[in-house]
């Protein structure tokens, strides 16, 4: 795991910021020796990774390699699956998120998530976006809520398409619009990290392009982690790429370096299409 440039015995907290070739970005998420089990299946083996702020990090790998599973450990969505067990340490801004005192509800407000299939609630567009701010009490009155919703929809790059029908059901939008609505819904709670689990797999190429453009913009404010099947997409939107294979993190580094000059032969096989 040399390519990850992580020394296992680095002290986790106040780890000195690593100088990468690109810039000096702050470390947002630090994972150390993460193991995930589904019942008896060892789904994630020994993964350690640092995820930077204001960066798009792509997780790639063949299906079943554990990239989605690992993504879901980052906001403890795995808690909703009874048989799932997580070991190791994952911290965000130095806080261990698997600490007993951590409330997953607070964590998920901080680490938003966008799913593979667009999943708008069967409510109006407005209520979809306002749902998060409402439950977290982000707005004191209607005017503030309106403002949050508008801002989120603008950030989701869908405001212009829906501003005249905010009270129409969210399920009535097209697939691409629904996914952007879901992204708007996720950013409305002001998260710091945005997890995206194959957000474009259910979309057509035009909608995909729109969402990819949006992801690039979101990088300004968030640390974005995206799981994707498509290597082209990873190359287009991400700055950092992690390649997973059979539950192992094989290689982690600059996207340009992974795609042009991979260190591990498995990575090379994958990006040249020999495994996958």
């Amino acid at each position: 795991m040399d390519a990850t440039n992580i020394k296992r015995d680095d002290p986790m907290y106040d780890a000195p910021l690593r100088k990468t070739e690109l810039d000096v970005q702050q470390n947002k998420i630090a994972a150390r020796d993460v193991q995930v089990y589904y019942g008896d299946t060892h789904a994630i083996k020994d993964v350690s990774v640092d995820i930077l702020d204001k960066t798009v990090t792509a997780f790639i790998g063949p299906s079943g390699c554990g990239k989605s599973t690992f993504l879901r450990t980052l906001n403890r969505m795995n808690d909703t699956i009874d048989i799932c067990r997580v070991e190791g340490q994952i911290s965000i801004d130095g806080d261990d998120i698997y600490d007993k005192r951590v409330d997953p509800v607070q964590l998920r407000a901080k680490v938003g998530m966008v799913f593979q299939k667009p999943n708008p609630f069967p409510k109006s567009i407005y209520d979809n976006v306002a749902y998060g701010p409402r439950i977290h009490g982000l707005a004191r009155n209607k005017a503030e809520l309106d403002e949050i919703v508008e801002k989120a929809l603008r950030r989701g790059a869908i405001w212009n398409e829906v501003k005249d029908r905010l009270h129409a059901p969210g399920t009535g939008l097209s697939g691409g619009q629904q996914q952007r609505l879901c992204i708007a819904r996720a950013v409305a709670t002001e998260p710091e990290v945005l997890l995206m689990d194959e957000p474009c797999s259910a979309l057509d190429p035009i909608a995909t392009a729109q969402v990819e453009e949006l992801i690039d913009e979101l990088r300004q404010d968030y640390s974005v982690v995206i799981v994707t099947h498509s290597m082209q997409q990873a190359a287009r939107v991400s700055q950092k790429t992690a390649f997973f294979h059979l539950g192992n993190l094989v290689e982690y580094g600059e996207t340009s370096q992974i795609f042009t000059n991979p260190v591990d032969p498995r990575t090379e096989s994958y990006i040249t299409g020999r495994i996958g």
């Binding site: 965000i92 806080d95 951590v102 409330d103 607070q106 977290h136 009490g137 982000l138 707005a139 503030e144």
Partner: peptide, 21 residues
């Protein structure tokens, strides 16, 4: 973004639950 001053926002620690939570 400091526009929204709702409870539970900002860089609060994850390990302490605020009143609203």
């Amino acid at each position: 973004d400091a526009t929204y001053s709702g409870a539970g926002k900002g860089r609060s620690s994850l390990t302490t639950a605020d009143a609203r939570t």
